[in-house]
Design a binder for these strands. Sequence first.
DNA 1: GACTAATTGAGACCGAGTATCATCTGCTGC
DNA 2: GCAGCAGATGATACTCGGTCTCAATTAGTC
Lengths: 142, 142
Amino acid sequence: MNVADRLDQAGARLTEPRRRLGALVDRQAGPFTASDLLESARREGLRVGRATVFRTLALLDEQGVVERVDLPSGEHAYVACARGHHHHAICVDCGRVADLPEIEIGLDLVDLERRSGFEIDAHRIELFGRCAACRSPSARAQ
Amino acid sequence: MNVADRLDQAGARLTEPRRRLGALVDRQAGPFTASDLLESARREGLRVGRATVFRTLALLDEQGVVERVDLPSGEHAYVACARGHHHHAICVDCGRVADLPEIEIGLDLVDLERRSGFEIDAHRIELFGRCAACRSPSARAQ
DNA sequence: GACTAATTGAGACCGAGTATCATCTGCTGC
DNA sequence: GCAGCAGATGATACTCGGTCTCAATTAGTC
């Protein structure tokens, strides 16, 4: 299901800017910032206000269509992602993002709560590294 | 060892602003932003430039004396912390921070690398919740 | 005490994000 | 198909975090 459909399903108004920005988000391969999205939009001839880009991203975040990640540089970026709780591995070379379902992370929250004395109600895990493609010999040669 | 001593040991020049800001960092209980630190400094009558606060925090981060955390609000904050790789659990009520050594997290990076195909060279884990003190009956009563 | 390189503070600057408000446009009910 | 309205848009001003510049200052060394 594409971004526009997910917005529709969530009961959000399907305006022209939302549809066009949604289509752009669909085509993003890796993490992108609000400015990136604005720039892509402008390049495609879509005249959209800066505020609308921020508002649309906030909406998409709310609906779980995108998720905000904090890059090591301190930038706030977004990645399009599947539903449900999961985490991301981000390739520092090509920007490719892998979704990692909770079960693959192996983080034992119950055990962590017991050890730390905290009642944990939110957590964030971000992994940065190089994906298989960027580590292949042909990629290295470039 | 306090912050100023750690800077000294690292070979950094021990200037008055660094010593005073270091002392302030020593006294922080939870995460603080650059603005927080500047404000505390001003309240204590320390006339220090905004740029110096940012520069000093960057230096402390570099030396591992503080670590930057990205709060769920998107704010960039710092926490004073012990040496070595570890993560933080941050209490959303009182701001108390618990250091969690890697071993307690139980994150199996080798396994993650195998499953995701990524060669992971950096990761960030942040936990947000309520500490034991804030969950106690007396704390609840307030 | 003098010298020098690093540091400082003031202030200009930049970019991300928010607030405001008049205008516009999807949706709904007819 | 159309009118009405709530919600969305875009332009713009604004705030705030963070960086840059540069002249003045200062810590450490000789």
